[in-house]
């Protein structure tokens, strides 16, 4: 029997901004194909954790490894993609151009249009609005676009930061269905950072709770996830 390195392994991770400690000593493992939810209130350190996992902030201690290899600033190239909170589509670029930017790291590895067509099949709504400026889309459409844009880089790990934030209940249902379908179709691994525990429970296989930069509870089941509340204390 061989001991395999876990797909994503975060060990004793710390991130500080000056004197402020955003993430203190967090460890977690995610298996390939799994969807793990990290839930916590505003300011619990979820976003910073997500950015550290995808090499977007400087780590002050501990390690992040993807299939046994340390992840740094080249995370996007290596297939760990962060989808920012608040969607952050490129408002003045068209939907299609937004998708093309997502394929930037893959530009020498094949025609980006192939992957674009896969996205259009997955989200026909985006195909209909291909030539529309992304800033004119609805919140739900922008969230789908932000996720599809990250998928253009053919990620192995997708870090979703509050995908339900500021969306209408209908839009949340659309996003949930899309992500569910995505897991079935592609088997992509997801680290879901959420405040909305009901939403997290519908998607994630298991979860953990963070508070003030530390892990407070581990290995919550789907049912437990749905039952707790992490609203700002």
């Amino acid at each position: 029997m061989t001991i395999e390195a876990p797909f994503l392994s975060v060990r004793r991770l710390s991130v500080t901004f000056g004197k402020a400690i955003a993430v203190a000593d967090i460890s977690l493992d995610v298996a390939e194909g799994e969807c793990v939810a990290v839930v916590g209130a505003n300011g619990a350190g979820k976003s910073t954790l997500g950015k550290a996992v995808t090499g977007l902030v400087h780590v002050s201690g501990g390690s992040v490894e993807l299939t046994g290899q340390p992840v740094g600033a080249d995370a996007a190239r290596r297939g760990a993609l962060y989808v920012p909170e608040g969607r952050m589509v490129f408002p003045q670029l068209t939907v299609e151009e937004n998708l093309k930017v997502g394929a930037f790291t893959q530009r020498r590895l094949g025609d980006w249009r192939t992957q674009r067509d896969v996205m259009y099949d997955l989200v026909p709504r985006l195909a209909e609005r291909a030539r529309v400026r992304a800033g004119l889309l609805s919140g739900g459409e922008q969230q789908l676009l932000a996720i599809a844009r990250a998928l253009m880089a053919r990620p192995r790990l997708l870090v979703l930061d509050e995908p339900s934030l500021g969306l209408s209940p209908t839009a949340i249902t659309t996003v949930t269905r899309f992500l569910g379908q995505l897991r079935v179709d592609t088997g992509v691994t997801i680290l879901l950072l959420e405040q909305n525990t009901a939403f997290a429970a519908r998607l994630a296989d298991r979860g953990l709770v963070v508070s003030l930069g530390r892990v407070e509870r581990t290995s919550l089941t789907q049912t437990q996830l749905g039952a707790i509340s992490v609203a700002t204390e």
Partner: peptide
């Protein structure tokens, strides 16, 4: 153009 539109979002895509 993408970086001019949103520098952080562009950085998340490499």
């Amino acid at each position: 153009r993408a970086t001019g539109d949103d520098r952080f979002a562009a950085s998340t895509l490499g």
